[in-house]
Design a protein around this nucleic acid. Structure first.
Lengths: 368, 368
DNA sequence: CTGAAAGCGCTAACAT
DNA sequence: ATGTTAGCGCTTTCAG
């Protein structure tokens, strides 16, 4: 029930104040207002005070839409993330959002269908004139990649890559990680191996499979059971069910990522009454937070999310500043984290920070 | 090595084509181009074909920034989500992103510090002229809420609410859910109860606590051990550790959400060797996907994310269309899902769809 | 149905 | 240091 005139106009629904209105109130030019709200501009203290005061009164907030139109920079980063329950994506998205915020960018999110490519929505997102695109575990057509290249729009893939090296990527060391896991399993005296693949078209799953087979082949192991989990709960369950129902079930299973490994552990225990780590070894890839929950104690090869995101940001920043900076394929190191879900070899396990890690002979020879 | 003039310009890095350029190529006016790309406009087939063709050649994409400037609608929804590992948030965000996309909106994400309020970043996000704000488990100052109200900006809180009813909210039935969990635990003949609170300032945690105490009080149980988990892994671990180390540890623990309940189950098993569901009962709230993993089998009160998100969207749409539509506080029904993490009462458990649920006498009397 | 013209709210030369 | 002016790329009256 206030009735003083100053508040009156505020009571009713009003459109946001403009710089022009602030200028009028402060008795200065509109460009002066603009300068006060532009970081690197030169304004006298008096002017700043007057403007800030007027702005305060009107609840003025610079319109970034208008600013974007003229600067051609939106300070928006388009981020694609697959619509699945995989905690690794959540962690990556979180880190991206937080890190980009620190350097003045916001994340424009689009949830991609993990099965389909991301082109259709990407196209939509380009209309918003995002300053860069980050694709978490999502692929894009080379046609689209070319278009982005021509537009000078930085694109970086996180946890995925393309055959062409014209698009930047940041991935874990899929090949070596998988190879080490193979060596680890071999050292643990396992005999019958199985691989649970992710999505068939995912470079990550393919690289991990290749590394795994390679590691196994070095010790003359040729036969590896192969099933497909598609990174989904349901598919992984039936895949693992198939594996374990076999007449000669595997004694070591490598899942293309931790999420599937967790699903596998669950199933092995609940449906087959298996003691994971003893009766059956299961390993994954990622080292998501839940992997270290005692109940799972998953042995896995780590992908340091924070570090990977930092790399993504570096790449984006470089491409943004340098006109045609070349695309780069970053591979971030990981470690084979030893926990209880797989039989532990006699040798090679060492303490590192707050966990145990394992290194194959070959690698530890080549000291850093 | 193409050299035809048409492609030449496309080869080099070029700024996006404008409607004006398309118009020129097509030999029509710029407004004609605009019309072709505006859903409800009237254009002849000939015109549309000419324009579309030219647009195709130039790779034209309407600039939504420019469009927003004039229409004053960005088709952006600001969404705040706490930066924690809680899978419930991920599920909610996923559903929001997907559902909003279907009606033409994109999500502008900002990760909020779960401890702090969301005001600082919200202010930042308003500069982007988002069409609405959705806060997932995040609170905002009443001052800020007022400002949004005056701007006619729809704000809806998901899984959180304020004391003031001037801001819309969609929540689960925290009070009743917690009360039923109390009744369930009572029916299971438990004697010593404990509550693991979430963040102290969270309405959700407070409501659940109140409901729990109320349900217990109806059967004259006055003493409830209380610890605080802050929805975080570390705090929950030490809170539960305290509880279980006590001389007279509880035989029933209600955690303010599923995530903390999962952490509690882990800890009880790993550190105390307890058989959860037999030695100790633990229940949660949310019914996240992992709650039904056999390894956890968490008894919990459900919050149907999809439905809640649908409500959020309804509220947003109404506020967007009707100028000053009143704020509403939606409460979405849930069910007490019975699994193995808590002792099961002799009566009251019934089959519903693909799971077991439990209803207190009082409630089942009042048939629908 | 189509074109011309006037801005949306702001930044960026260019003067002063 | 401050004001003036000219757009950014689009939508939207308003004529024709």
């Amino acid at each position: 029930m206030k009735s003083d005139p100053v508040n009156m106009e505020v009571e009713s629904e009003r459109r946001p104040a403009t710089a022009y209105e602030v200028a009028e109130l402060a008795g200065v030019s509109q460009s002066a207002v603009s300068r006060v709200f532009t970081p690197g501009a030169s304004v006298s203290a008096t002017m700043r005070a007057k403007v800030l005061d007027a702005a305060q009164q009107l609840g003025y907030r610079p319109n970034l839409v208008a600013r974007s139109l003229i600067t051609r920079r939106s300070s928006l980063i388009g981020v694609a993330v697959p619509g699945t329950a995989n905690p690794f994506y959540q962690a990556a998205l979180d880190a991206l959002s937080t890190s980009f915020a620190r350097i003045g960018y916001r994340v424009l999110l689009f949830t991609s269908d993990p099965m389909a490519g991301s082109d259709p929505i990407l196209d939509e997102v380009l209309r918003y004139r995002v300053d860069a695109l980050v694709l978490i575990s999502t692929s894009l057509s080379s046609h689209f990649a070319d278009e982005c290249l021509q537009l000078g729009l930085p694109v970086v893939m996180l946890n995925r890559k393309t055959d062409s090296d014209s698009v930047s990527s940041v991935t874990g060391d899929n090949r070596r990680g998988a190879k080490e896991l193979a060596a680890f399993l071999l050292a643990g005296k396992h005999r019958r191996f199985a691989y649970v693949a992710g999505l068939e078209h995912s470079s990550t799953s393919r690289d991990r499979e290749a590394g795994f087979l390679e590691g196994l082949a070095e010790r003359k192991v040729r036969h590896v059971e192969r099933v497909v989990g598609n990174y989904s709960t349901a598919d992984t369950e039936s895949a693992v069910r198939t594996l374990l129902s076999s007449a000669t079930p595997p004694d070591a299973i490598f899942c293309a990522n931790d999420y599937m490994a967790l699903v596998a552990i669950n199933l092995a225990r609940a449906e087959f009454g298996l003691q994971v780590g003893t009766d059956l070894s299961i390993v994954g890839f990622d080292d998501i937070e839940m992997a270290r929950w005692p109940i799972f104690g998953l042995t896995t090869y780590s992908q340091p999310v924070e570090l990977m995101v930092r790399r993504v940001i570096q790449v984006v920043e470089r491409q943004l500043s340098t006109a045609a900076a070349p695309a780069v394929q970053h591979i971030v190191d990981g470690e084979l984290i030893v926990r209880g879900s797989a039989r532990i070899p006699q040798t090679g396990v060492v303490r590192s920070a707050d966990h145990w890690i394992w290194r194959s002979r070959k690698r530890s020879d080549a000291s850093r």
